[in-house]
Amino acid sequence: MIMPVHNALPYLDAAVESILSQTFSDFEFVILDDASTDGSTQRLHHWASRDARIRLLHEDRNLGPARSSERVARAASAPIVARMDADDISFPQRLADQLAVLDRYPAVGVVGGLFDIIDANGRIVRGPELWRVRQPASVPPFGNGPLTYRREVFDQVGGYREECEFWEDNDLILRMAAVTKIMVLPYSVYQVRQAGISNRLSSEQQRVERAVDLMYRARTRLDQGLTYDDLLRSSLKDDRKVSPQVFVSLGSIVLWAGGRPRLFKRLLSRGELGFDRRSLTALVWTAWGTVEPRSLRAFIRLLLLGRKLRTRLVMRIDGPVLWPMLRSHRPIPALSSQPGRTRKAFDAAYAVEPAEALSPTSRRTLK
Rank of each mutant, 00 (worst) to 15 (best):
Y149P: 04
P186T: 01
V125S: 15
N121H: 15
I124G: 10
V125F: 14
G112A: 07
R150N: 11
I182H: 01
R126A: 15
G143Y: 11
N121V: 12
A178V: 11
D116Y: 14
S138N: 13
C164Y: 02
G145L: 07
A107P: 01
M183F: 12
V179R: 11
R132P: 04
S138F: 04
Y160L: 04
V108C: 05
N121Y: 13
V133H: 06
D119H: 11
L172V: 03
D171E: 05
V133I: 15
V139L: 15
V139Q: 12
V110K: 01
R134K: 13
G113Q: 08
A107W: 10
S138Y: 10
V153M: 11
V125P: 12
V153E: 07
G159F: 10
Q135A: 15
F142Q: 02
A107T: 13
E152L: 09
I118L: 14
R161V: 03
L147N: 07
G113W: 00
M183W: 05
K181R: 13
L130V: 04
R151E: 08
V153K: 06
G158V: 07
L172P: 05
R161T: 06
Q156Y: 07
D155N: 09
P141K: 01
S138Q: 10
I124H: 12
Y160Q: 06
D119C: 12
A120H: 12
R104P: 11
P106R: 07
L147C: 10
I117H: 05
D171Y: 00
V108H: 00
E168V: 01
R161S: 12
L172C: 05
V179N: 09
L147D: 04
A178H: 06
D155F: 10
L114N: 06
S138T: 08
A120V: 14
Y105I: 14
V139R: 08
